[in-house]
Amino acid sequence: MGEIIDALAIALKAGIGFQAVFLALLAIGINMQFGYTGLLNFGQIAFALLGGYGIAISVSQWGLNFWVGVLIGLLAAVVLALLLGLPTLRLRADYLAIATIAAAEGLRLLFRSVSATPVTNGSRGISGFNSGFVELAPWDTGRRYRLLGTFWSGADLWVTAVGWTLVALASLLVWALVRSPWGRVVRSIREDEDAVRALGKNVYVYKMQALVLGGVFGALGGMIYAVGTGSTTPDQYQNANTFLAYAALILGGAARVLGPVIGAMLMYFIIQFADSGLRSLTENGVIPDGLLTTTDVAQIRFVIIGLGLILLLVFRPQGIFGDRREVMLDAR
């Protein structure tokens, strides 16, 4: 029983840790692009990579101020969104999907390539760039703090607090936007862009705005992840994270302001709970060794997530916050 409570506490920590913030920000961006505007961005992680490396390269390699690094990261994300959007947003939805997935994989490989090593330090990555950020914490970052039955380092607590503030601000921005006439236009574009064109709206500009905004959220997520881990390596930014963010979004409910936030928290909670719960069950012999060993747990937790998602789509396709009537409508 004690192990289960421990596992719960660890899972709770994961559910509100900076990794969950990272996933939430990726998912908020995807929600803006896919949930509201209908844009298929399958390379959200590329924006996170640019955010994280924007800080890392600026601070560690170029010796710039931390906040200049933040600015550079955001700017890089905007540029990437424009580059991806310019040629593809006039075309059908699938072209953006292809371009973004290629960009995400291409950028990761570029950043870990030998020729980029002088700037990105190759596959070993960059570290030691977050001290400027951590020392801003109003509490002693050297100590450990007890919170909800788990221990947090002062630095983690600071990154997490700033992260959730960012999530709150991003959610507020999305909320303000989607309730406005601007939000009505982008949701209409999701339904049928020709109808929107016929009513005199410049669909291309709206799609670009949504793509850039979502990309900026992704970059912020990447920054939180980078200062949280204290280092950036290209392989942190595997494109699987994009799809994990999609899963979180669908779990929480697409086209809902809090859908991606709750989805991301729950996703990390479930992953971590499955992991530590199964691990303790196998260790004290409740699950026999013949069925499951501790080394299998890392894989089996994703099987559990997948099974959970399938059940979700069967029994609650709208996610946690979604409106079932809305999801059940024929898209056209």
């Binding site: 009505r184 949701r187 209409s188 999701r190 339904e191 049928d192 020709d194 109808a195 016929a198 809305e326 409508l329 024929d330 898209a331 056209r332």
Partner: peptide, 9 residues
């Protein structure tokens, strides 16, 4: 010709 009602609005 094919009506374009914006279904989920």
């Amino acid at each position: 010709q094919l009506t374009k009602a914006l279904s989920r609005l």
